[in-house]
């Protein structure tokens, strides 16, 4: 057991909203050569948050669904978490967070990519399209219409990723046969098993020539 007295003391120190206390204690003190006293003072003045902005975050200029964003982000933030947690664009889904399921598929400069495998800062200057940017206002993209008609989903969670991949699959020229569609859509897992309907939706859009 950890000695309770020590713990209580530490907890007291850590209680409240002193979540930036790290300046007092962490190695950042040495990194920026502040004396402990100066660090505590800096913390009290909430200078630590400002400092954090300077040393923990990087500038990012990114266009998402036609809208320009000038942001500061931690280098470790993925494009997926930037979209979902910071910009509230939750249409892009997190299924595995390690590039194995396709739920987070977006278009980066027109090419499909797994946003969970992209650090946000790698995309400075890029143009991102997410599912929210696919429709023309209230008018659905033909692929979205085809997914509804062919029932290309059940629970709907993999759906935005499937649709983003499906659109790219046609643009890439990889939708020329059922076999080819199946091969080039195999990076998008659908656990409900709507695969056959997804293929039919893609075939219809491809044959319709709308995109």
């Amino acid at each position: 057991m950890i000695e309770n007295n020590t713990r209580e003391k530490e907890e007291k120190e850590l209680s409240g909203n002193s979540r930036r206390d790290f300046l007092k204690k962490s190695s950042v003190i040495t990194a920026i050569a502040l004396t402990p006293v100066a660090a505590v003072k800096a913390s009290d003045l909430k200078l630590d948050e400002k400092l954090s902005d300077a040393i923990e975050q990087m500038p990012l200029s990114i266009e998402i669904n036609g809208q320009q964003h000038n942001l500061k982000v931690e280098p470790r933030t993925t494009l997926l978490d930037l979209l979902r947690e910071r910009l509230k664009l939750t249409g892009t889904k997190k299924g595995c967070d390690q590039g194995q399921c396709g739920a987070c598929t977006v278009h980066i400069d027109g090419v499909r990519a797994l946003s969970c495998l992209q650090l946000a800062v790698m995309n400075d200057g890029a143009k991102i399209t997410t599912i929210e940017g696919l429709s023309d206002g209230d008018k659905l993209h033909p692929m979205q219409e085809a997914f509804i008609k062919h029932d290309g989903f059940q629970c709907g969670y993999c759906t935005p990723g499937q649709i983003m991949s499906a659109v790219a699959c046609i643009h890439e020229g990889h939708a020329n046969s059922e076999t080819e569609i199946r091969e080039f859509m195999s990076g998008n897992i659908c656990r409900c098993g709507a695969y056959a309907n997804i293929v039919n939706a893609i075939k219809e859009v491809k044959e319709g020539g709308a995109i």
Partner: peptide, 19 residues
Amino acid sequence: MSRVDGRVKVMGAAKYTAE
């Protein structure tokens, strides 16, 4: 008949728990 929640799902507008 198609799914009544199809539109919100294909638009990415359906809010799942973490969203």
